[in-house]
Amino acid sequence: MYPDSLQGLIDELARLPGIGPKSAQRIALSVVKRGPNDARRLADALVDAVTKVRPCRECFSLSDGELCPVCANPARDPAIICVVEGERDVLAFERAKAFSGRYHVLGGVINPLEGTSPEDLHLKELIERLRSSAVQEVVLATSATVEGEATARYLARLLEPSGIKVSRLATGVPAGGDLDYVDEVTLGMALEGRRQL
């Protein structure tokens, strides 16, 4: 029903995550209507990003150069490393502006069902980093899922011989939230992890 060239664009767009067939149609039609100048800008931006962005040599977060902005920033504390599952988690922490240390992106979690084993994660590189620099604390910030928790335990075991302090991100009540709306499992964990005032 659509001309072949347009259908080709729709098919390509629909392969992207979060874009269903209907959204793909809408985006494709809008791109066509906006004309060749806008399309070229979009194409350039796409190619530019894909060719320039690569994993940071240190932390495997996304970067334009050898080092990501965090690793390149001398003001960031090298003594504390926050271990996360993916690049998006780094952005979440950066938005929060609450962390002044550095990151390490694992690139996933240990998940035998999906065939992800420890060798598929950037673990060796983490150990290497810990060996070559004066890191005092590792914060395990994998998500609170079955696999995220298992990965955190795995890392804790791996790091035990090094004597470096290992901590786990707390689970609890969201800021500004009504206790009423917190699900009972989270509330139970928040109670377990309570601290003295």
């Binding site: 035998p112 084993s117 060798e119 791996l158």
Partner: peptide
């Protein structure tokens, strides 16, 4: 059931 199970992974999943 995997061909060569990683021992530390097994330790972790067992204990969890």
């Amino acid at each position: 059931r995997s061909s060569n199970p990683d021992i530390t992974s097994l330790d972790v999943f067992d204990s969890r």
